[in-house]
Design a binder for these strands. Sequence first.
DNA 1: GTGGTCTAGACCACG
DNA 2: GTGGTCTAGACCACC
Lengths: 132, 132, 132, 132
Amino acid sequence: MFIQLELESAEPIYIQLQHQIIEGIAKKKLHPGDALPSVRSLAADIGINLHTVNKAYQQLKQDGFILIHRQKGVVINPDGVPKADKAFRKQLKSSLHPLISNSICRGLTEEEFKEMCSDIFTEFKEEGEIHE
Amino acid sequence: MFIQLELESAEPIYIQLQHQIIEGIAKKKLHPGDALPSVRSLAADIGINLHTVNKAYQQLKQDGFILIHRQKGVVINPDGVPKADKAFRKQLKSSLHPLISNSICRGLTEEEFKEMCSDIFTEFKEEGEIHE
Amino acid sequence: MFIQLELESAEPIYIQLQHQIIEGIAKKKLHPGDALPSVRSLAADIGINLHTVNKAYQQLKQDGFILIHRQKGVVINPDGVPKADKAFRKQLKSSLHPLISNSICRGLTEEEFKEMCSDIFTEFKEEGEIHE
Amino acid sequence: MFIQLELESAEPIYIQLQHQIIEGIAKKKLHPGDALPSVRSLAADIGINLHTVNKAYQQLKQDGFILIHRQKGVVINPDGVPKADKAFRKQLKSSLHPLISNSICRGLTEEEFKEMCSDIFTEFKEEGEIHE
DNA sequence: GTGGTCTAGACCACG
DNA sequence: GTGGTCTAGACCACC
């Protein structure tokens, strides 16, 4: 796997793990239906406790990114991720809010901010084409 | 004060408090040099613990948003907030990263995402003109 | 066979299998004395493990739904299913209990709840007439 | 607290705990805004591990029954429980389905079944009036 | 004091 | 072998 964690970060490990997997899907390193390693093997692989992996998996399952298949183990949701609904948009907005207010205070213009977003989108797009 | 907290949120109160004050600055409800309530009075005002307010203030001071004079009390940094530096940009980018990868997975286009950002920027601009 | 399983469900496969067969009897797709596929062939048919089918069969036998002859194979109990006894009623009640308390909390009225039950009963009755 | 668990039951403890609390709300022993014991004290009280209590609380929070308030601790959702939506009805129906098919096989009539439901509803209503 | 996170080790149900 | 559950003990952030 391509998972890379910062064990010293303030960000909880299981959150980082979630992010990494979501990123993997966004970059098309992981495709719908793909199998993910078992909690045990992934835990051993990256040297963390299996419960921590499990917590990440549970939340990803809850959010519709993965399914826990009784025979195949853990797989990326074959039907794709649920589309952005109202709740997601609302939550996204409230995550963006403090970032933008802080940026404004620090003199970042709307254009600069959006360009940063573009950069990140482009990064995903390019990576995505490689793995497609 | 205009502070509004959600005591049931997963977001720590002191973080919410910081955000609210930063928002106040971004919306120009608070101007450089303006006085902020003392730790004690703010705490009493919004019904939270002294330590919580103090923690928020300390971090705002650390980030250059406010100054804490032993006698004059707490004031918004008269010199304005430090401009966005490389460290800030980097941190901003790493905050944006998971939001964008999640959005991509959920089928939000770059345009939609940026439009959401615009909406928020506009919100700040409009509020800003009122209080200017 | 008409068996339909959800391999990603939290419900164990052998339980789903039981339910499907019991449903088949309730809808009169299966009649007393009817033969059921062997453990081996059913497992191959629906692509699951032998043990899983066997476990479902054993429990169905235990509950009096089927008989397992060493030679004739598996048949629906020719004498019909044992009538609801006290133990069954008690167990049913304790299954219903949490469903009803949850429904009450969510504002579902007794009438609405019973109507849902009626809907399901009707569904069985209609299907039953077709296969009778 | 009024919690009573069967440690030997096949039903996981955290599920039983959830049911007990939901029942408490349905019977109006617990009202919106009421405080619930902390994970630690409840765990000590009923002699189980605090993580088990936590798991029950997390799921109740997820389902909107309780809120984790930063100051007051754990409280019954003051806004009441989310009303039965389509998803809940669907899930309820699929829980009812196997119970009803089994009942049909065992010769329980629709009237008998509904009467059992009525009994349970009445039980909640009576208890509810006491604690109101 | 609280809940949140992480680790660790155990047992069981399932397939 | 898998994930699910339960226990236990630790540290930390928050209030």
